[in-house]
Design a protein around this nucleic acid. Structure first.
Lengths: 214, 214
DNA sequence: ATTATCTATAGATCTATAGATAATGC
DNA sequence: ATTATCTATAGATCTATAGATAATGC
């Protein structure tokens, strides 16, 4: 009857969290495979979890998928933040995250697939990736690096470019993804009010390796 | 046994075409309503067509949906073409179509919904709308109005902007859609290499009314 | 004693087709 | 005679839950 007196989660809570995480991870694979109609049983089997457990955590497949996509975006937004933590210039941080996102389309096709399966949900500013991009833009405006009259409208083009670039790289596997991404990044920076030469230079700076833990 | 000797479709062919068109129209409503899992029976009932007829025309719901989306995009691409038929400047034609697309998100929510339900499929250049946009860009480059090193990469940003703008207008119904659309259009024109002042001017020109048949 | 998980399944739902009917062609 | 459509349904599939089992808390 008495509650756990410590703040740390109990063994039972940890077990519950593990089941939930397994479901989310399995759902990410399923979404990445484009199997949006996969039976719940298939997902729970992939998660190595009993069918009944699903309903302990989610009411519907749709709800699970949303949680799975949010988790993926949050996780990767976080990764970008760590990579740019040491950068003073918010414009540089923005450009670096944009360029890394383009490279991830090739490097991690599963995440890429999740992105554009639920693509336009991402265009809303209430997900981990778009929220961080908005934040970087606002910071760069404050620092006098960008000139943007309306952040939401700028995000329209930024998010659109991220999504459609992913689509293009997917459709044209022979295309050089680094060059293409940097080209689009440069275009986007100019659109955000940065002079062309500076945009070009900032998109040629070395990037952290995707292999290194940030 | 003998084939119909005239080129005009026979009564039978016309009947078949009517059934197909009814299915496509019903599918567009269903897609617009976001009911991507709607049972086939529901679609055939909306089309006022027997369940069995569905299989005379399509193998699966997915196939019907694709045909429905293609039809919607082709139909509207065509509408834009007629509107800009009398314009000499391809840059003006491009800008006008872009601005009208933004207005259509408000004016015809069903089409808008179709667009971003199948949004990223649209980013591929093999649909009626994107194909026309590419064509206009190429023409404007030839006419010396745009400066675009890579049409496909430019289309990445254009298509992304169209989609995500639709999303934004949907999420923020209080936002003025004409002003927002024209602002994004201007940004896109600058990105396509047009000087800022000219881009601004071209986005202030009067538009044909959506009510007039083009 | 309580909570989370598991297994097994009733009942709902849907797809795809068989066979009947109606329209067209000649 | 041929082709398209319709109605009705067998069989496949899936969801959501009931009831049993296992793990944790005290």
């Amino acid at each position: 009857m008495a509650q756990n007196r410590t703040d740390s989660p109990s063994r039972q809570e940890r077990r519950k969290a593990r089941t939930r995480a397994a479901l989310i991870k399995a759902a990410q694979s399923v979404v990445a495979a484009g199997r949006l109609n996969a039976p719940i049983l298939e997902i729970t089997q992939a998660a190595d979890v009993g069918m009944g457990s699903f309903y302990n955590h989610f009411d519907s497949r749709e709800q699970l998928f949303r949680a799975a996509v949010d988790d993926a975006l949050e996780r990767h937004g976080n990764r970008f933040d760590e990579w740019s933590a040491c950068l003073d210039d918010p414009a540089h941080a923005f450009a670096q995250s944009f360029r890394l996102t383009g490279r991830i389309h090739r490097r991690e096709p599963a995440l890429s697939q999740v992105l554009f399966t639920f693509g336009l949900a991402m265009a809303a500013v209430d997900n981990g990736l778009a929220r961080r991009a908005s934040r970087d833009i606002d910071r760069a405006v404050l620092a006098g690096r960008f000139v943007v009259p309306d952040t939401d409208l700028a995000m329209v083009v930024v998010a659109g470019a991220v999504l459609c670039l992913g689509r293009l790289l997917h459709d044209q596997p022979e295309r050089d993804h680094a060059t293409s991404t940097d080209h689009v990044a440069q275009t986007v920076l100019r659109m955000l009010g940065m002079p062309g030469e500076e945009a070009s230079e900032i998109c040629q700076r070395p990037l952290p390796s995707l292999d290194d833990p940030p």
